[in-house]
């Protein structure tokens, strides 16, 4: 089931993040898991704006209890994707590291037309003992 299908443009960065928060939240993702997923998606969107030609598409899907957000761009592609954490003194290049650290899985696909990056999150049903929100 498609929850969200949006064009990525730089001026929509914040609006997209809020839309993903609302849609993933409505699907049942909560608290830390929701915040982590939203930041992971945000980092992928940021990458499209900075390195992926500045425009692309975002697709948020729900399949059972799994949320998948797929971000596609039409940029030149990444020759070497290095997903590592820089030392605290270094500037730069934490985006993809954060995306994979905060999501269930980060998958990057290269094709001649561009790059597709996906992150997933699993919705866990609320425990009976959990306080209502």
């Amino acid at each position: 089931m498609t929850l969200l299908s949006e064009a990525i443009i730089a001026s929509a960065l914040t609006r997209l993040r809020h839309a993903v928060t609302a849609a993933a939240g409505s699907a049942g993702l909560t608290d830390d898991a929701l915040e982590d997923f939203v930041l992971a998606v945000h980092e992928l969107v940021t990458n499209v704006i900075r390195h992926g030609g500045g425009a692309g598409e975002l697709l948020l899907r729900q399949d059972g209890d799994v949320l998948t957000c797929r971000v596609t761009d039409r940029g030149p592609g990444l020759d070497d994707v290095v997903v590592r954490l820089p030392t605290p003194e270094e500037a730069g290049h934490r985006g993809l590291w954060l995306a994979q650290r905060l999501s269930g899985a980060l998958v990057i696909d290269h094709s001649p037309g561009g790059v597709t990056a996906s992150v997933t999150a699993r919705i866990t049903p609320p425990r009976p003992t959990a306080q209502g929100r």
Binding site: R17, E43, T46, G92, H93, R94, G95, L98
Partner: peptide, 8 residues
Amino acid sequence: FIDSAVIN
């Protein structure tokens, strides 16, 4: 909220 750009 902060992202990697803000961390940088």
